[in-house]
Amino acid sequence: MATAPTSTGIMRRFAFMAAALALLGAFAVHRAWPPVGRAELAGTYQRATPLLLPVGNTPGQMVLHADGTLDLMGPPGQPAVHSRWYWDPQERLVRTEDPRWDRRIWMRSTLLGPRLCMRICDTPLLLDQEERDEAVDYVRTSTPSRP
């Protein structure tokens, strides 16, 4: 026979569930947009190697120097890029002086923490009507470098 829910029981369940959802929501929001400063971002990054996603001509290595310069190296046959970078904390976006790389590097969040990633397609954003916005992750391999 089904157990009859009393009014107190119903209220108790709702209160418990609402409280649990509020806690989970707060945790979710905190994990989604953790504050990241420019200093924390500086360092050397290696491109991840996804199994199926073609990574095009994205650089194999990216170095965000603490002095505000940026080095992009590889893949073979591609010239190294040297430019200046700055961090847009509001948009969580790496901006560069070189327009080819500007707005191509951004931060996405994961359960294990934030990750830098780079848009693979090199067609400028405003000309790419098909929105080829697949991005490849970059994994940090060393702590901030000093000038």
Partner: peptide
């Protein structure tokens, strides 16, 4: 949620 909220 973290990856959802910052999805492409």
């Amino acid at each position: 949620y973290p990856s959802y909220a910052t999805r492409r």
